Simulated scan of single mutants.
Amino acid sequence: MNPMQVVTVLVIISLPDLTKSFQPDYNILSDGVSFTHLMITETAILRKTAEVCRDIAADEGRDFTLNIDGSLTVSKVQRACSGTPSSTVPVSAVSFQNALSTIHDSNTRVDTKIKSALTAENHFDNEEFVAGRNIITEGVFAVKFNVLRGNFEVGRKTLGRICHTLQDFYSHSDWVELNNNKPYSALIIPSQPLTNLAGQDVPTCSSCTEDVCRDNILPDILERKLLTSGYFEFFSKVKPAGKSN
């Protein structure tokens, strides 16, 4: 296995920790700039890859001088991760970028392929929290399964798809409005129960006819910290009473 594959494997099999990079505020406008799926995914992978390489360097008694912050780039991480003394094949920045591109493309296809784009659980819409979580946890299993068998390309594609669904949880649900500032670990750990789900029979939002609804979550929902998400005509012709678009 060459160094590029080693880095990719380490990134993928550490997926349960990867969500530390998906802070909810990445889905909120910041100074007029919206963080896209591509930006979120690349930031997370570069940061996690750098952390893995830093830990390997520490185990081998080597210095690791790269600052793991918002200035990470493919070339910076590639150079920092190419310093393993045992490496006989140099890690190519082009290969690293190609691996990222595969993950990006798969992430994007969740929104561009009709079947996945119009399936509520892929986006945590229509309060499909259980089905959405299943996509993520089953995807994590599939990624690890393919990595162990050397199917790295398949693993990257699966990683891209489940990253999209994971990201959509934070942007399509009221997790941010509930003032949560940590990742929802139950989304990636199937043994943890999904708690405080509002349910389809619980009114969660006031009426809104605008394209973008703001501050329309009912105070009782915020006080009780109940999870809800928007409903869309594509997924449900009859929106339950008291739900948001």
Rank of each mutant, 00 (worst) to 15 (best):
F152H: 10
P3R: 10
Q78V: 09
G70Y: 07
E51M: 01
C163R: 08
K225S: 09
L66R: 00
T108S: 14
E223N: 13
V89D: 05
L10S: 03
L222S: 04
A80R: 00
F35V: 13
I56C: 05
I45L: 10
T41N: 12
R214V: 15
L227T: 01
L148V: 11
H123S: 02
L194P: 05
L18N: 02
F152K: 05
V238Y: 11
R214H: 11
P240F: 11
N179V: 07
D69V: 02
N98M: 07
R54M: 06
V6Y: 04
A80P: 00
V11L: 15
T36W: 04
S21C: 13
F96L: 15
S171G: 09
N98E: 12
N134V: 02
I162R: 03
P3Q: 06
V89I: 13
G199D: 09
T49V: 06
E51A: 02
D31A: 14
T204M: 10
K237N: 06
Y184K: 13
L166C: 08
S34C: 02
R214K: 15
S236T: 15
W175Q: 03
Q5K: 11
S14L: 00
L10A: 03
V11G: 10
N98P: 01
Q23R: 15
A117P: 06
Y170A: 06
V9C: 12
N27P: 03
V33M: 09
T119L: 12
V74H: 06
L227W: 08
T36A: 06
S92G: 00
V7D: 03
R214F: 10
I13T: 13
V202W: 09
L15P: 00
V7C: 03
F22W: 14
G160C: 01
A93H: 00
A57K: 00
L72N: 00
A186W: 10
G150H: 09
T108K: 14
Q78G: 01
P219W: 00
Q23S: 12
I103M: 05
Q167C: 11
G150A: 02
T102I: 12
